[in-house]
């Protein structure tokens, strides 16, 4: 899945007075970025660069972990053993993606527990898409096709992010993400081509519900993303929100036509002059409502995460106590030997 470019992060405080040494270090850093070099964990970096990355990578990691919940909802009710195995593998991948990303963020000097605490107390965001419910089996296919499709669109440019540990994590994620999109599209294709009229209607209904939230995954319009420019200059972001959204619409509409579904947008049409699809206005008040915590499932998702964390506490503590006991046992055995 992926992080939402929301530009609601820490403000740049680089305007404050710097020492001559800091100014020199920053100039050297900017030069490295401009030359297309990668930045590694122990290299010097401006404080704001570090903060922006911690926010973006941890938010991205949270999205992977929370993203397991809407799909996990259907593991026990998958229609066949084959679909259940596929869904289990996909949800396991999302957990793995969360881990790669948390690890990348930890290289910046934040701890796993600090990040999880920020998520559990509601200080950290995750992608707004996961605050929508999965009401039918078709939702699982549509999430793969649209939500993972949007994620790929967003994540491929991140493989060239200037911060190398993040870029390396994204390369790994992107290699696995293609399976997610293809399995979703194929599940829908089977229902559309070999299914009953009810199944086809179920697919169309799921597309109707997920289309607009999927477009919102690319974040606010460029004119409302004041921090994007800094992220672009620093090579954290490579393509603007609106450009990615357009790319997604252009790639997805023909896929929908092949599938035999329509998207719920009366204004959608091919614009020959632009060489792109024109599409209708996004409901931004809804976007900000969901980002702000008032979507259909925000409270349920967070409560589920907090419950899992709290109920797992004894396991985490017991594993650590066991490890300590084994280590001291080994040490005393080594002494007597």
């Amino acid at each position: 899945m992926y992080t939402q470019a929301m530009s609601v992060g820490p403000q740049d405080t680089s305007a404050k007075i710097k020492s001559a040494e800091e100014a020199r270090a920053e100039a050297a850093f900017e030069a490295r970025i401009a030359a297309g070099e990668f930045i590694e964990a122990k290299d010097w970096m401006p404080d704001h660069y570090r903060k922006t990355l911690v926010r973006q990578i941890s938010q991205h990691a949270h999205s992977e972990i929370v993203g397991m919940l809407p799909e996990g909802n259907w593991i026990t009710r998958a229609p066949t053993l084959k679909r259940k195995a596929i869904l289990l593998a996909k949800v396991q991948d999302e957990g793995g993606h969360g881990l790669y990303l948390y690890s990348a963020a930890e290289t910046l000097g934040t701890s796993r527990d600090q990040m999880l605490d920020a998520l559990h107390t509601g200080r950290a965001k995750y992608s707004s898409i996961f605050n929508y419910p999965t009401l039918s089996w078709a939702d699982i296919g549509v999430i793969g096709w649209l939500v993972d499709g949007a994620a790929i669109m967003n994540q491929v440019p991140l493989c060239r992010c200037s911060y190398a540990p993040y870029a390396r994590a994204m390369i790994r994620v992107c290699r696995e993400e293609s399976f997610h999109q293809r399995q979703g599209y194929e599940a829908l294709l089977v229902m559309m081509q070999k299914g009953t009229p009810e199944q086809r209607a179920m697919v169309q209904e799921a597309v109707n519900r997920w289309w607009w939230p999927s477009l919102m995954m690319f974040g606010p319009a460029d004119k409302d993303s004041p921090n994007s420019e800094q992220s672009m200059r620093w090579g954290i972001k490579r393509i603007s929100n609106d450009d990615l959204r357009q790319k997604f619409v252009d790639a997805t509409i023909p896929q929908g036509e092949l599938l035999g579904v329509t998207v719920p947008d009366a204004d959608l049409r091919w614009n020959e002059a632009r060489g792109h699809y024109d599409f209708g206005a996004i409901d931004w008040p809804e976007f900000w409502r969901v980002v702000g915590g008032d979507g259909p499932c925000n409270r349920e998702r967070l409560a589920t995460r907090v419950k899992a964390w709290e109920e797992g506490a004894w396991v985490r503590e017991a594993a650590l106590a066991h490890a300590k006991k084994q280590a001291s046992k080994q040490a005393s055995q080594a002494q007597t030997a």
Binding site: E106, L108, G109, D113, Q114
Partner: peptide, 16 residues
């Protein structure tokens, strides 16, 4: 390679 300069509480499992 991960940087170990975190202020992780001791209850966190070690990093490998």
């Amino acid at each position: 390679m991960s940087d170990n300069k975190t202020n992780a509480p001791s209850a966190e499992w070690p990093l490998w």
